[in-house]
Simulated assay, not measured.
Amino acid sequence: MNNKFLIYSLVGLLSSGAIGGIVLSNSKQAQSLPASGNAQQSRSVRVDRHFIEMMIPHHQDAIVMADLALSRGRRPEIKKIAASIKQAQTREITEMRTWYKQWFGTEVPNHSMTDMGMMGDHHNQGQKKGSGMGTGSGSGMGQGMGQGMMDMKMDIDALKTAKDFDKEFVRQMIPHHQMAVKMAQMASGRATHSEIRTLAESIIKSQNAEIAKMQGWQQAWH
């Protein structure tokens, strides 16, 4: 998996609104925008929405990996961090689903990564036609994200059959956490709702701490 490319794809999507086609697709969503019509506030609302839509499936992948670690991990520290990841991220998913329903009047969409890629492509094509833009940072971003998530699924499959599960778990979970931290850093300074900002700061703090632990284990085990 090209983790660096996937990180930039997700962060770029969060900041540029490359899936804007699903952000303002109905009247309930439009009503969620600030009454003042301030453009900056509107962008902040989109950040809140994008953050939840991206972070939930990201958390779900971490939980899949944590479940594997609880059953296949050999070292007690792996089982301990897996249990912590599962507990924290399950709770955060529940919180984000509740907020999304309250703020946007609907459930979090269950879009596949392929669907998101197609939406991003359609949005970028619209930019090309409407403004002459198409070679900027958002162009092709959705497609790259979809490919990145397919690569992540392949890595999870590899984790299931890894000869040294613990080492492979750490090798994959570090960049996975780093991706979440990048997304949270974007949201912490741009989100409208204080709940998102607080959650983002919590993710940054907790997952950076877990990254440091796992990097220490990598050095010790090698």
Rank of each mutant, 00 (worst) to 15 (best):
M154S: 12
E95H: 08
Q218T: 09
N208M: 15
P76N: 05
A191Y: 04
L199E: 03
R49F: 01
P57V: 10
V170E: 03
M116A: 10
Y8M: 10
M54S: 08
I52Y: 00
R197C: 03
M214W: 04
K28N: 06
V23H: 04
G105P: 04
G148Q: 05
S42I: 08
Q172V: 03
G136M: 07
S131P: 00
I85Q: 00
N2W: 09
K79M: 06
S202L: 12
Q40Y: 15
G132E: 04
V181A: 07
K205P: 08
S131L: 08
L159P: 02
R171S: 09
K182C: 14
I81R: 01
T192L: 10
F169D: 02
H123S: 11
Q215G: 04
A158E: 13
I22T: 08
A184K: 01
I19Y: 01
M183N: 07
P34I: 01
M55F: 06
E107P: 00
L10I: 13
R75C: 01
A220T: 12
W221V: 13
G148P: 10
E168W: 01
S16P: 02
S112R: 03
Y8F: 13
A62H: 03
E107S: 12
E92I: 05
M119N: 11
R49Y: 00
I156Q: 05
Q31S: 10
D164W: 05
A220I: 02
I85T: 05
K160G: 05
M145I: 14
N3C: 04
V47K: 01
K213A: 07
Q172M: 08
S15N: 04
S9C: 12
L159F: 06
F5S: 07
I52K: 00
R97S: 03
G130I: 10
S139Y: 07
S84N: 09
D115K: 15
R49K: 12
K167C: 06
S27Q: 12
A209R: 08
I81E: 07
D151C: 06
W217P: 02
P175T: 11
A209Y: 08
D121M: 11
S84H: 15
T106N: 08
E107K: 12
Q178I: 13
A82K: 03
N110A: 13
Q207A: 13
S16N: 03
I93R: 05
D115Y: 11
L14W: 07
Q87V: 07
I174V: 12
G120V: 09
M133Y: 05
A200S: 15
K160T: 13
T114I: 12
M118V: 15
T135R: 09
T114L: 14
Y8W: 14
M96R: 04
N2T: 15
M119E: 06
K167E: 07
R46Y: 04
I85N: 06
H50F: 02
G138I: 04
K80E: 12
K153Y: 12
L33Q: 09
G130M: 11
E210M: 13
S112Y: 09
A158Q: 14
G73C: 04
A69H: 01
Q40M: 14
N124E: 15
G21A: 00
V64K: 03
G216P: 02
H193G: 07
F51E: 01
A212K: 15
A18I: 10
A220P: 00
K182H: 12
G138A: 15
S32T: 03
M173C: 06
G189I: 15
T192H: 03
S36K: 08
Q125P: 00
R197I: 09
M145T: 11
E53Q: 11
M154K: 13
